[in-house]
Amino acid sequence: MAKHPVDPALQECDPPPSGKLSRERMLACALEIIDRDGIEKLTMRRLARALNHDPMSLYRYAPNKAALLDGVAETVLDQLAVDPTDADWTAQLRAVARQYRRLVLSHPHVVPLLVTRPLATPLALRPRGTLRPLEAVLTLLTRAGFTDADALHVYRALFALLHGHVLDELREHADNPEENDDLLRLGLHRLPADEFPLLRGLATTLTSYDGAAELERGLDILLTGLNTTLTPTP
């Protein structure tokens, strides 16, 4: 099988010493390319060059780019640990939320694969690895005494919060990071003061955004509400 020279820009995707390709190595290299250059820069041909393998060898593990991207999503979510036996379901959900945030911040270019791509795929057709966190959270909550339906409601509420949070945290907040004046830094000086007095008044708060603290506050609100409205059966 013909080999291609390793792409000098992708030296971190060195193949294993044996030279043998594996699905795990292929997906790890694909994730490295996405982390560095974004999803749109990942192609089967470029990935093959990075691994110093013929492009056709990749199709043994992923029949097309869509399957490759699904595999990358599974690779990332494999790092999300959920303990369905934890007796303290609120503490476990909080731990899962913190992990999820760290994963996304470590792989920001993967966000579309985790947040928006699944919307176009029926649940049963999604990669099984991406469904395991859902199954684990449902197990955690039903063991805690929630009905199956309420457990699903809790999962949806939690990940709706997480997806909204990570998208907000990854969004660029400042028009001009070098500007000292908060109104100018965020571009809020462009808004009429008589129409947006509260938003303009929050300039300092907006520029001092703390993603970790913001997530904790959101979890406080969510989990307090869940404890009030969806009390599990002992």
Results as ranks from 00 to 15, higher is better:
G164Y: 13
G19E: 07
A144R: 02
P84W: 00
P17Q: 05
A157L: 13
T147Q: 14
E169M: 10
A50S: 04
V111T: 15
T147R: 12
F196L: 01
P5K: 08
P108K: 02
L141K: 02
P234L: 15
K65T: 09
P8R: 04
A120C: 13
A28M: 04
P112I: 09
A160I: 02
D168S: 05
H4D: 10
R132N: 04
A87K: 14
P234V: 15
A48W: 05
A193E: 04
A212E: 11
G129N: 04
K41L: 11
Q11G: 14
P84R: 00
L223Q: 09
P232I: 04
L134H: 09
A81R: 08
P177H: 09
P122T: 05
L162T: 03
T205D: 13
T231A: 10
L31G: 05
K20D: 15
T139Y: 03
D181P: 09
A203Y: 01
A67P: 10
P118M: 10
P55F: 00
N180H: 13
L51Q: 03
P84L: 01
V76Q: 06
P127R: 03
P16S: 14
E24I: 09
M1S: 15
P177A: 08
E24Y: 10
R117V: 09
F146I: 03
R143T: 08
A144I: 02
G201N: 07
R190Y: 09
D168H: 11
R23S: 13
D220K: 04
Q99S: 07
E24C: 13
D194A: 12
L191A: 14
P234Q: 15
G201C: 05
N52K: 14
E135M: 14
V104M: 02
T207W: 11
A213S: 12
P63R: 05
L105K: 05
R171T: 05
L152H: 08
L138G: 02
P16V: 14
P84V: 01
N227D: 07
T205A: 14
I33S: 06
S57K: 12
L162K: 01
A213F: 05
A50L: 01
L68W: 00
T231K: 11
T142M: 10
V115M: 03
D148A: 12
R143C: 07
Q92W: 09
T139L: 09
E135T: 13
H4N: 11
L93A: 04
E172P: 14
G201D: 06
Y61A: 03
A212N: 03
W89Y: 03
V96C: 00
G38T: 07
A120H: 07
L93N: 00
N52S: 15
R200E: 08
E24V: 11
L105N: 07
F146T: 01
A124E: 13
R60G: 13
V115F: 04
P55D: 01
A212V: 06
T207A: 15
A28L: 03
G187M: 04
L58F: 00
H189I: 12
D220Y: 04
D194Q: 08
T224H: 04
L105C: 12
P122Q: 08
A66N: 13
E135Y: 13
